[in-house]
Simulated assay, not measured.
Amino acid sequence: MATRLLVFANCQSNPLASTLGVMSPDVEIIRCPPVHTIPAAKTDSVFDLLSQADMIVHQPIGQGFGPISSDAIKERFPEKHYASFPSVYYGGVFPQLRYLRRPGGGTLSGPLTDYHDMRILKSFLDDMPVEACVEKLENDGSDYQDLVTAAKQESYAREVGVDVPVMKWVEEALQERPCFYTFNHPDNKLLWLIAEHLLQQLGLPISPDAKLRQKPFLGEISAAVPRGIAQALGASWRRDLYAINGEEIAWRDIVERFYALYASVADLRTIVDFNRKRSMIPLI
């Protein structure tokens, strides 16, 4: 009889669940919505899904999620088998990339969904012409070492206490590939490695015939990597442009789209100040 397995996590939950299902012949996946999309009115339906699972793979879900936090779930279902992994996140390859949270709730969306390039934002706030901003981005020789160090510390802090930490693998692989499409969207190879170790943690078999999926699970937005980052890593790869669904976007197009967005946001400086105060890593 197959082991019923549920992944309880953020946007990484469904890709990881699919990978686990492909990798182990003894696993039956119970699908659950990403935790950040679950409204309070739907918690009973989530409890029903969790009750059906034999094993629960989860990220550390904080107390702010109330009855669906990790601790609350373990208290409600003490008989389940659990294995944890971090919210897989690394900003060291993309030190320029951030969300812009609104003070009243929600996130400012734009040309790259919820992601913003702080170099473009700063150029806009400094009244830099589009042409000058484009030139700056194309020839970015900035020293990002302090931001990379802060990002690494943040990512390691997210892993404290989990069963399957991830950052050691990221550091080992970075010379060969960036490992992420954006700071919270790992590539399929990294998801595969996480799934492999979670199955080992749970004592579940791994099929020798399982194949890595080639189409990215989380590659809708592929973020540009500043040249100084790849150079500092001694990396053999380059990612000079942003891409949306695999189509690269010229810098001028990206800058013009962001400038138009920021010009339309009346409370932009309030949003920037709010994010500057709440960020662990310098904003701009």
Rank of each mutant, 00 (worst) to 15 (best):
Cys179Gly: 04
Asn188Asp: 05
Val160His: 11
Trp192Thr: 06
Ile194Val: 15
Gln201Arg: 14
Asp127Val: 01
Val130Asp: 00
Tyr156Asn: 09
Glu131Gly: 04
Glu159Thr: 15
Gln153Thr: 15
Tyr181His: 15
Glu135Arg: 11
Pro186Glu: 03
Glu131Val: 11
Glu171Gly: 07
Glu172Asp: 12
Gln201Val: 04
Tyr181Ala: 08
Val166Thr: 15
Tyr181Val: 11
Asn139Glu: 08
Leu191Pro: 13
Thr182Gly: 01
Cys133Glu: 03
His197Leu: 02
Ala151Asn: 14
Cys133Phe: 05
Val160Asp: 05
Cys179Pro: 10
Ser142Ile: 02
Asn188His: 07
Arg177Thr: 15
Gly141Cys: 09
Arg177Trp: 08
Asp187Val: 15
Ser142Phe: 08
Met128Asp: 03
Leu174Ala: 01
Arg177Asp: 10
Pro186His: 00
Leu204Val: 07
Val130Gln: 01
Asp143Met: 06
Gly141Phe: 00
Arg177His: 13
Lys152Gln: 09
Met128Cys: 13
Gln175Val: 15
Leu191Ile: 15
Leu191Phe: 11
Glu171His: 12
His197Trp: 02
Leu147Pro: 04
Asp163Pro: 08
Lys168Asp: 14
Val134Phe: 06
Leu204Asn: 06
Trp169Ser: 12
Gln145Thr: 15
Val134Lys: 04
Asp140Met: 05
Gln200Asp: 08
Arg158Thr: 07
Glu172Asn: 10
Tyr156Gly: 00
Glu159Asp: 09
Ser155Phe: 11
Pro178Met: 01
Leu198Thr: 14
Gly141Gln: 08
Leu198Val: 15
Gln145Met: 12
Met167Thr: 14
Val148Ser: 02
Asp140Ala: 01
Arg158Gly: 12
Ala157Phe: 06
Trp192Gly: 00
Tyr181Cys: 05
Met128Phe: 00
Leu193Phe: 01
Gly141Leu: 04
Asp143Trp: 10
Gly141Ser: 01
Ala132Thr: 09
Leu198Gln: 03
Ala150Thr: 01
Leu174Tyr: 13
Gln153Ile: 08
Pro165Ser: 08
Asp140Trp: 10
Leu199Cys: 03
Cys179Asn: 11
Trp192Gln: 03
Arg177Gln: 14
Ala151His: 14
Ser142Met: 07
Leu190Tyr: 04
Ala132Asp: 11
Val170Gln: 03
Ile194Pro: 01
